[in-house]
Design a protein around this nucleic acid. Structure first.
Lengths: 128, 128
DNA sequence: GATAAAATTGATAATGATTATTATTATTGT
DNA sequence: ACAATAATAATAATCATTATCAATTTTATC
């Protein structure tokens, strides 16, 4: 894997915008600094970085793939109203792979835990 | 909601094929009995039945929506080799909404827990 | 049972996210 | 500096899903 300015910028954009952006969102953010960037390049590199374990691909939230600079174990929550994505601490359901293996004999490589509901801000707005 | 023969057949197909089929898979299965069925009708009714809570929509397994006749609380596992979907018992991670609410204050409406890895059969085949 | 209103269907076009293609440009080892 | 290799930009293609709409089916009423 050679160095590329575009890939570098894509990674930085993800680190500086910890909002679990979609590929298209990263593309829009980057276009300000790098107007000639191609959407295909953004997809290519986000997938590459995720495959290398440098970032994380989040699927299952709303059908659209999102990307996370934080590779530590944790889960996600998407607000059904404002569509913002929040982190959920790992200890709400720790060691799932081991539990599944113990109960079923399946060999778990990865797991996705995603929640959907109303975030704090939208709860307030709805309450009235 | 009026009765329709097609919707009835779609529900029966799901109940008789407990393999967590995709919409396209239901369509292919149904074409044997109902050659004139339209893919749009399959999508329309699977979504309708899921919205009514009669069946369950499973998203997050592999990007493609799958459907489950079993509406009881449980999770899913998809084999990364043969792509078969297995059920995972609820008690590997029970009461997640309450735990998330307790830790974060988020109001959880639904959650998706999906595992990926090697199923028993594919483990055997790989071992040699 | 006939009939009109409402719901559903089949066929297909449209959409939206993602991937593939390819000629051009950038990077790297020598 | 230069050839070999990798990456890019632009865009076409793909795939799952949804929207559109004329024709058909279902249902309530007579």
């Amino acid at each position: 894997m050679n160095y590329s300015r575009q890939r570098d910028l894509i990674l930085k954009t993800l680190q500086e915008n910890a909002v679990h952006p979609t590929a298209d969102c990263v593309y829009e953010l980057l276009k300000k600094k790098e107007p000639n960037i191609s959407l295909a390049t953004v997809y290519r590199n986000l997938n590459l970085l995720a495959d290398k374990g440098i970032i994380r691909r989040i699927s299952g939230l709303d059908g659209i793939a999102r990307f996370d600079h934080n590779t530590h174990k944790h889960y996600h929550f998407i607000c059904s109203k404002c569509h913002k994505v929040y982190d959920v601490p790992y200890d709400v359901a720790p060691d799932l792979p081991a539990r599944v293996a113990a109960e079923t004999g399946l060999e778990v490589e990865s797991c996705q835990v995603s929640f959907k509901g109303l975030c704090g801000e939208c709860q307030k707005l709805t309450r009235n």
